[in-house]
Amino acid sequence: MNESAELVVLALKLLKCNQKTLAEKLSVSATQITKWKAGDYISIDMREKIENMLDLKGMPTNMVLMSGSVENAIQWTSLIDTIASIVGGMSETGYETKPLVYQEELGELGWSTFLTLDEMGVVLPDTFPNELKEANQAYNDDSDEYDNEEAFDVIINNPYSALIYKIYKNLNDVYGFYAAYVHKIMFNDELDLFCTDADNIEPSLMDLAASKLNEEDTQLATNFLSFRLKTKTNFEEWLNIVKLAAIERNVPLGAELLDMIHQSSDALCHNAERQALGLNKERLHPDIYMNELLVGMRTMHAVLPHILKKLDIQVDVLGSQL
């Protein structure tokens, strides 16, 4: 479901009306509502009109739709920010996990998190859990009801918040590997990777982090197996674009980039940490080593005929000396 369809479905749900009534409220035809619901583009002015009518309070459409109400979306956004602040400080890769540490727009992290949860097949409860509201308040309002340790226990034991917490922990490691080995290559102007599908890598790191969950942690994710397969397939395609571009331009790779897909979160953490500590300086990746061999062989093929001519050595086409 794209953004236009989400907004129409949300309007029908929150306004508790049918498509004909919604069309009258917006002064458009019922056919136009059907087209929007099917995914046709909604103009910026009309989108603003619908959002103001729904009084979304700045909440992303997908969060309100998945959580069931604007109030629920606000509660989930606040809890997500709390979990991000907890997990963001746990990174051991030597790199900041920017999606968790820097949030430029209200609900931006919540929007991307809910997008991943939706792809995984997670259905949120109709009502925001009261115990999570109290635990979140302990962090945000310095509540005296219980301390942060107790609040933390509540968060990691609730199945929904625990799932988000574990995804973010994996994101620390996935983002660390990305920052250590991929980010600099992506921003290499000579490679022009932002004109390719590799541009999807950074915005999709949340999906890759979620795909590394243990199966026992994915009971709420009814679509997890197909989600994991799709995510791995996409990342293999995107990372191979980066590898090929780097090898063609002799840009060093500090690690096998496909490890980002196949290695565990712990292994990615250790690899990123080695790079952050400068322990990979002497390391030459096999892809680059093979590329240097090929370059060397081409050079030898170009120079060898001149050497043989100078030594007055003649060879036939099969390489035998005459």
Rank of each mutant, 00 (worst) to 15 (best):
M1A: 08
M1Q: 01
E3W: 12
E6L: 12
V8E: 12
L14T: 00
Q19M: 14
S27Y: 06
A30R: 13
I33E: 05
D40G: 05
D40H: 07
K57H: 15
G58S: 09
V64Q: 02
S67H: 01
N72Y: 08
S78C: 12
I80V: 13
M90E: 14
G94W: 03
Y95H: 10
Y95Q: 06
T97L: 05
Y102N: 03
E105R: 14
L109D: 07
L124T: 14
F128Y: 05
P129L: 06
E134T: 03
Y139R: 02
E149H: 09
I164T: 04
I167N: 06
D173A: 15
Y178I: 11
V182A: 03
V182P: 03
V182T: 07
N188K: 10
D189C: 02
D189V: 07
L191F: 12
D192F: 04
D199Q: 11
N200P: 11
S204A: 14
N214W: 01
T218Q: 14
T222Y: 04
N223M: 06
E248F: 10
R249I: 00
G254P: 10
E256T: 08
S264L: 14
N271L: 15
A276F: 14
L277Q: 13
L284K: 12
T299K: 15
D312I: 02
Q314R: 09
V315A: 12
V317I: 10
L318G: 10
L322W: 07
L322P: 01
